[in-house]
Write a protein that binds this DNA or RNA. Sequence first.
DNA 1: ATTATATACGAACATATGTTCTTTGTCAAG
DNA 2: CTTGACAAAGAACATATGTTCGTATATAAT
Lengths: 212, 212
Amino acid sequence: MVRELSDRQRRIYEFLYDYIRAKERAPTVREIGEAVGIPSTSVVKYNLLKLAEEGLIEYNPKIARGIRLIGEAVRRLADSIRIPILGPIAAGQPIPVPDTSLDYERTIELTRDIVKNQKGIYALEVQGDSMIDALIHDGDIVLMRYQPTVENGELAAVWLRREEEATLKRFYLEGDRVRLQPANPMMKPIFVPADNVEVKGKVVCVIRRLDS
Amino acid sequence: MVRELSDRQRRIYEFLYDYIRAKERAPTVREIGEAVGIPSTSVVKYNLLKLAEEGLIEYNPKIARGIRLIGEAVRRLADSIRIPILGPIAAGQPIPVPDTSLDYERTIELTRDIVKNQKGIYALEVQGDSMIDALIHDGDIVLMRYQPTVENGELAAVWLRREEEATLKRFYLEGDRVRLQPANPMMKPIFVPADNVEVKGKVVCVIRRLDS
DNA sequence: ATTATATACGAACATATGTTCTTTGTCAAG
DNA sequence: CTTGACAAAGAACATATGTTCGTATATAAT
């Protein structure tokens, strides 16, 4: 079933993908022919039917601009997720957490390749170099999942009550104390009493945008 | 400008929304008329133009099924970009660069919020902790733009010819030598002769996925 | 050489689909 | 009442767009 696509078929498919993404509608047979360099509309149709046989597109006879992409391709088009950027995270400041207010000033748009499960996800922008031990830089975007506990070994955003300090470290509960391990293996862990640690969420992803 | 919509116009808009979401294409004038109970195609057109005036839809004259929804409703549908992951980047290994072969084993899907301009972008997966001075961790995905030179101060992927070593550092050309500055401000720069440095590209973004 | 199959061409054709135009009805303003 | 703006109908029209068909070429199998 999975035959090789001919060169033309591949080019048609790519054109369809680009066109649909750009215009949110399918091209006509003639538009395809012109773009791919096929002079005859019947040949375009012939190859479209091949693509449909391969399960790559949906071909709706007699319907103007009736082609649809199928499967993986559409999922890519359809799926992106908007995550709110709640605010800055810095060593000496409380960690922002989600509230019920519905609109946020800033958001970031991501795909499912980055965030598998959108539930409880929010973003913070790192301010300052205080989390450099976690290999996190000034300006980085940290994606967090809001949850009051984490598994041992997960990278957590924690608030140290006594020190009134926010930090990002790997979390290990060891008896009645907590070992907070920097991501940088050259750096030593710190140990704090368990009741001094308030887990604010789990770090799911770190994004560092350096340039357009 | 923000006039009240007539009942018909509201029903047309709702129908458009449902239809497009279900079929990924716009209905024809006649389909709209039938669904909303308008017997005359000209009346459908009349009301579509009203909706377009209000900025609710995009009306493309003479194009079959040329209606588009405008605004938040559709925004989610549009843009994501597939970037190939060419391979690992590690201290002691040559840096992979794009070639002409068209399909890649692994890719990552991103949005324009991450990659503004797709041109020349590829991804590498960091192997090992040798780039920890650049605040880059084992397993991180590094997005690169393939280019043979970089501006001073940009984070570059460079190949040190003599040492046969790959590294990611901020690049400063100073006379006939190059200063390579780690991202971690606590660490000292290294200086190398300019002809020992081969720039492989610019680092555009770093992504660290910790967990689904 | 012959046959079969996949692919391609181009023109004529069919119809799906947008557009125009004339007429009509409603309703508020003058 | 008359006028004008707005909304609607329906039919005729124009064209955008899919389809069919006779023919042709290349390649591989017989």
